[in-house]
Design a protein around this nucleic acid. Structure first.
Lengths: 229, 229
DNA sequence: TAATTGTCTTGTATAAAATACACTAAGATT
DNA sequence: AATCTTAGTGTATTTTATACAAGACAATTA
């Protein structure tokens, strides 16, 4: 038992993990093992330990509930409404990340969850707590972030075609893009490197493969990829 | 005394309040009344009560320590390193806002602080805790936000001249702008309304006054003031 | 009242970036 | 060889960003 002079809210973390399955944006959910919301689907998450940073808590909870390890997540927002948890006052710091769906396609419910599974963002089950709000904000942020930073490469295999890249952008933005202009813009940004390899095995012309050009990206960033001034 | 089954971090809020004094970007600090860091300058802030949202806690603490009331603040980031507070584990949700410096020029240390005062962002005293980190992040965010949203009008009097507006942008961005191009861009954005009034009393041509055009801004936002696609 | 001072206000030419748009190329299959 | 399907490419137009200099006007002073 732990005693304090003043009452303290409990502190949790919640993780919004996005992945791209073909052309569908999905999110990783767990099925809750305990009350409240027993059996409901929810974002992976849990209580922050005293001896870990909140970033670490997010990583740990994700691992414990879904098995995903070493996922770099970014802090999203802290949710602190008074009645967001029926157990009492619980403040939750939300994180989000993009992962390669292929690498984590088969998730199992790990230690602290009945089950874990991917759901299309457009067809979600009812979620526990205020997790629908958290997820909506994360989706919003994802869309914005993609504009300025070359995240999203994390969603693709190491070598990818221009079609795959474009489809990813179209999926996350929910909008069709022109092939030629898209190619022009991406090449101009210098985020990708052309490879001398082609993706074969389909019944049509073999598309060239590309990979993310980290150096190109960083040198651009150093130059100051600023928009205004 | 309050007892819990598991230990809990304490939860605080901290507020970064920016104001523009002539051409100098300033931030509102308080001088701490108690240990730790007694007598040090720090961001206004304090513990979250059980029956208030974290947003409310930020407003309340700001009021209690500086007297500023009804300031709309935006959540910035949550700081959760293990050793950021010598008293033990304390997680802090940071908020930031812009206020009209003129309206709050004379701050007093209110109930919970020895003193409160404005400091130029470029000439800060040593700060308590990790408040330098918080402030740096807030400044960063402020600069970015100004690009996309017409905040900053909160920093000016209701009626302002183009010079004042431009000087504000130059101060926050720390960069000189071309007068003609600046005027063109702002007018094109439709954020301001021309008034039939002029600012007199100086020994030179009287500049026209403008005010923030909320309708113009909102209609633009509805149209989708998007940058890409 | 004419000249001076200091800021306010305005336009145009050029360069860069975004957009719209349609055909040929090349594997795979029949 | 013909067909199917996706890959790949260029140009003209519009929009936006940038660079840049002179006259307008109110107040003050000679």
């Amino acid at each position: 038992m732990y005693t304090y002079e003043y009452p303290r809210p409990a502190l949790t973390v919640d993780c919004v993990i996005f992945g791209l399955d073909e052309n569908v944006l999905k999110v990783l959910l767990i099925q809750r093992l305990k009350a409240p919301f027993e059996g409901s689907w929810a974002l992976p998450g849990g209580f922050v330990d005293m001896r870990e940073t909140i970033d670490h808590a997010a990583q740990r909870e994700l691992q414990e509930e879904t098995g995903l390890e070493n996922i770099y997540m970014e802090q999203l927002y802290t949710f602190g409404d008074v009645d967001r948890d029926p157990r009492g006052r619980v403040v939750s710091v939300a994180y989000y990340a993009l992962v390669k769906f292929e690498d984590y396609k088969k998730v199992r419910g790990a230690t602290d969850a009945m089950d874990a599974a991917w759901f299309a963002v457009s067809e979600l089950p009812p979620l526990a707590f205020d997790h629908d709000k958290i997820l909506a904000l994360a989706h919003q942020r994802l869309k914005n972030k993609l504009r300025y930073q070359p995240i999203g490469f994390e969603l693709l295999p190491e070598k990818f075609t221009f079609s795959q890249l474009q489809t990813m952008y179209e999926t996350i933005w929910q909008k069709e893009l022109d092939k030629r202009n898209f190619r022009k813009k991406i090449l101009q940004l210098g985020f990708v490197m052309e490879l001398e390899e082609y993706q074969t095995g389909h019944q049509h012309r073999a598309p060239r493969l590309y990979k993310f050009d980290k150096e190109g990206y960083l040198s651009r960033e150093a130059k100051g990829a600023d928009f205004e001034g």
